[in-house]
Design a protein around this nucleic acid. Structure first.
Lengths: 339, 339
DNA sequence: TTGTAAGCGTTATCAC
DNA sequence: GTGATAACGCTTACAA
């Protein structure tokens, strides 16, 4: 009866090979590697020596297939070029790596359809759980997630419907900036928005509410552009704002990138900041402290968000009792000289 | 004889289930999905309908186990917080995703030991190939790679020993900046270096050679710090440089971050740029165009590097004839106002 | 404490 | 064009 040997992945050394080398069965080697306590010390040492000598590397696909656990978490973020999400990833990695979990990263490009496609594609890896950015997904997204019984933690924002989330109130943050500008005596406060994702719109809402409450609502001072934000865009927005409304005395930019462009243009046009025009940003990226004048902005706890979200997810994966499912990490107004 | 049903991963729908629903065997369903041409059209349609109806999702672990190909590429980069490597990742993703490959990302934190540990850990996924940053790895790295017969492409730099690589000459780039500063009439040219990785040291070499050739070598004007670069560090370096060498008339910063800190400090200290002190950076990150004055720097083709490196790797994986293994993508001097 | 047998979901091989 | 069978490497369940 002829055998049918196949091509092998990796370096070709299997649990069985290691077992043969020591004179034990494959399952014993497996135990040495996963639950050393259940194996006698004598064997344990011999096996570990053989593992080392033969250069055995566990095959994750086989483990996954046999155990029905992939030890993999799917992380969906809107962009790789935005430091905010990179910082979040770093926080996630910090928790997942030591726990033996692998992070799969999907870039949605701020697009719900793409997000759904990514989920479909990554489902082939049968991730054990999901970390999502924001609260709003494609209409079919949730059903698919439930069908696969995947635990989910949302990041960057706060839900009120019981979904697990780790973040802060984007609306409150918008209110905080607007309130700050009012407290500095500004009365004609503009809003510059790009990308116009869920979170930017909530910041805009907070800004609107605060201005309205002060009787200073100014929809004509809102400049919104759905394209990704750039510094150039910030500069351009400033030009068009001042052309139409030279009486404007403050600008709340939905992120630091726009704000940096605005500040640069102010310097070019000799506009006094903050005396003539106050400028505020959002996120507190590293260049914010090095503009001239340094930028007043909202510092967001994004690395911490990643860390806590990952911890929450792991707790669910282990079936551990987890604390509150809505975790508010807050934000901080970084008051510098631009506003 | 009692069966032993196990827990299942994913949504529980297998090739076999789909086959049963249509009245064909599992292997036929597999063929419909992978090689539709080899299945009659009638069957094909029925099968695809069932796949859709049942919500079948292929199990990648099982495929990997059976086919000995993981369709996975391991990418090792030194840092997630450096835009340079994020851009490279974006280029890689652009090529890998459409080709059906999954990218595993490992963050080495500029540490060869960590890089080796990551390789060991990720080997469990049996990646089909490797994309590495730089040319220098841990002493044991290469042996491990060869043992697993993994094709490798190096990124960001150029090797002369036949290894596959996609990048540009870091040394030439250093020479280009130094040469430019000389051509602007500068004679006391400092070098600020952080991180001090392989590539920074090569830029430093290029700078040294150029200055030496002009009879203007000035080792006392080199400030090197092995810690990760920050804008603060750039500002601090400028302070200590000018304290010791007030006659210095130019600074070549090993990256834009340092340069931004230097420019900010120049503005604070009322140092005229470039008249009194010329400042050059490296990488041409987006803020570089928005400093005051705008930063002269080296634009590097990092996204393209990622793209081409991924293409080269895929060609090797497919056993296709690949062109030259050393691909020089060059760089461009971005001449702005700071130098 | 250690081993045996079976099964995880897919694909390679060979037969029809 | 379609199917039966075994094999991929590991872990669960159960036996010794």
């Amino acid at each position: 009866m002829p055998r049918k040997p196949r091509v092998r992945a990796g370096n070709g050394v299997t649990l069985h090979d290691v077992g043969d080398a020591v004179g034990v069965s494959a399952i014993t080697v497996s135990r040495v590697l996963r639950t050393p306590d259940k194996v006698s010390e004598a064997l344990r040492e011999k096996v570990l020596a053989a593992v080392d000598r033969l250069g055995y590397v566990p095959n994750r696909a086989a483990r996954h297939l046999a155990s029905a656990r992939s030890n993999t978490v799917l992380v969906l973020i809107p962009s790789l070029s935005n430091t905010v999400f990179i910082d979040t990833l770093a926080g996630i990695e910090e928790v997942l790596q030591p726990a033996g979990y692998q992070m799969l990263i999907g870039n949605t490009h701020y697009d719900a359809d793409q997000e759904l496609r990514l989920l479909r594609a990554y489902l082939e890896h049968s991730p054990d759980g999901l970390l999502l950015t924001g609260l709003t997904q494609h209409a079919d997204f949730r059903a698919l997630v439930e069908r696969h019984r995947l635990p989910v933690v949302h990041m960057m924002d706060l839900a009120d419907d019981g979904r697990a989330c780790v973040g802060f109130s984007q609306e409150d943050a918008g209110r905080a900036i607007a309130g700050h500008l009012l407290s500095r005596g500004k009365r004609r406060i503009a809003f510059f928005g790009a990308q116009l994702d869920e979170r930017v719109m909530k910041r805009l809402d907070g800004y609107r509410q605060t201005l309205a409450a002060a009787g200073l609502a100014a929809p004509e001072l809102e400049i919104l552009d759905p394209r990704p934000s750039t510094m150039q865009m910030g500069a351009d927005m400033l030009d068009s704002l001042l052309a139409a409304h030279p009486d404007c005395d403050a600008v709340f930019c939905c992120n630091d990138d726009l704000a940096i462009g605005v500040l640069a243009r102010c310097q070019q046009r000799d506009i006094a900041v903050p005396a003539q025009l106050a400028v505020a940003g959002f996120n507190d990226l590293s260049p914010a402290a090095w503009t001239s004048p340094p930028l007043t902005t909202i510092a967001t706890p994004r690395r911490e968000i990643g860390r806590i979200a990952a911890q929450q997810l792991l707790a669910r994966l282990d079936g551990k009792p987890h604390g509150p499912s809505r975790i508010d990490l807050g934000f901080a107004l970084q008051h510098r000289q631009s506003a």
